[in-house]
């Protein structure tokens, strides 16, 4: 065997070893194919539909681009959709805020308890499971459950209130704006605070135990450790929670749709429900629904960027600037 042949053989061997990397692409390929077909394409299709005249199933495949006219529906106060859309936008923000503030507070409290080495809580695993449980039950089941509990005039909640002497006559929860919105916020809170708590616990566990030990040696109280060590160090996780919760909250659909159907008087109608109704009920106004989706998308992008900017690590930015200059 000549030297040259031996060399090329060796090179081939080395080559085939390097070639294994292509299997990596094979393994990620299914995700990208599914993503391209079922996510990216629909997103572009939504953008296109928002500029077209696609009203009704018959026009979905042969619609014509008509420009930005559909967006006028949401910008011109005289259009029939203007009030409904912005009203549902306001409802969504109210319901989301009312659920998010208690959710993050409760999750923080529980997360700090579960990770506190001094508290030595028993049955941590069991508690975590119980708290996370509502998140596993499907929204439809929960909606049916709450609907039957708070029904009118004969239902468990009303029977309890009357028998406890708190009320003389049955109360119609789903005709009261405050009660309806509160119930939806409560369900959202109840379903999601476990999830937030798990993420926060993961964030707290990532903090170096040395910091806590040092604090313990220095005689810090639990409260001081929480405010001066835990809270500043899980700020990125809190920001992540805030942004994901806001994105999810603005797309809130299932509970309002199943529990109240937007009633009473459209005060629990959310943006996602508005979009659904435009697209899949009535005359199937796909173009208006898509335009509303695009507006919601832009709003979410802007709101997320604003949050990132507001919550940026100011000290780190200052430090960078100082060094750079």
């Amino acid at each position: 065997m000549s030297k040259l042949a031996a060399d090329s053989q060796r090179r081939q061997k080395r080559f085939s070893k390097v070639d294994y990397s292509r299997y990596g692409y094979y393994f990620v390929a299914p995700f990208f194919i599914v993503f391209l077909i079922f996510q990216l394409y629909p997103i572009f299709f939504t953008f296109r539909t928002s500029l077209s005249d696609a009203i009704g199933w018959g026009k979905i495949n042969n619609s014509v681009i008509i420009g930005f006219q559909n967006f006028k529906m949401y910008l011109d106060p005289a259009s029939p959709l203007f009030n409904d859309f912005w009203n549902s936008f306001g409802n969504t923000l109210i319901i989301w805020t009312a659920n998010f503030i208690p959710q993050i507070l409760m999750a923080l409290l529980l997360a700090s308890w579960f990770t506190d080495s001094r508290m030595q809580l028993k049955f941590r695993g069991g508690f975590k499971m119980l708290i996370f449980m509502p998140n596993i039950i499907t929204a439809a089941t929960i909606a049916v459950l709450f609907y039957s509990i708070f029904n009118y005039p004969i239902a468990p909640a009303n029977s309890f209130l009357q028998q406890a002497g708190l009320m003389n006559a049955p109360f119609e929860f789903f005709r009261s704006v405050v009660a309806s919105r509160s119930l939806i916020s409560f369900v959202q809170w109840w379903m999601w605070y476990g999830n937030t708590m798990i993420i926060l616990i993961a964030g707290i566990m990532g903090i170096s135990p040395e910091l806590y030990e040092a604090a313990l040696v220095d005689g810090c109280t639990s409260r001081q450790t929480f405010y001066f060590i835990t809270l500043p160090l899980i700020k990125p996780i809190l920001l992540y929670n805030l942004v994901t919760s806001m994105i999810g909250g603005l797309q809130m659909f299932d509970i309002p749709h199943l529990l109240t159907e937007g009633n009473p008087n459209k005060t629990t109608n959310t943006v996602a429900r508005f979009i659904y109704q435009q697209a899949f009920t009535g005359s199937r106004n796909f173009n208006y629904a898509s335009a509303a989706s695009v507006i919601l998308f832009l709003f979410i992008v802007l709101a997320s960027l604003t949050l990132f900017w507001l919550m940026r690590d100011k000290d780190a930015v200052r430090e960078l600037k100082r060094r750079g200059r």
């Binding site: 029939p80 119609e172 208006y288």
Partner: peptide, 25 residues
């Protein structure tokens, strides 16, 4: 009937809702 709206408001809201749902009516 529950006294949340008067008749004229209710009918006006209904008409607006129909117009919003059906581009073809």
């Amino acid at each position: 009937i529950k006294g949340e709206k008067d008749l004229d408001t209710a009918i006006a809201d209904f008409k607006a809702a129909v117009a919003a749902a059906f581009a073809n009516i």
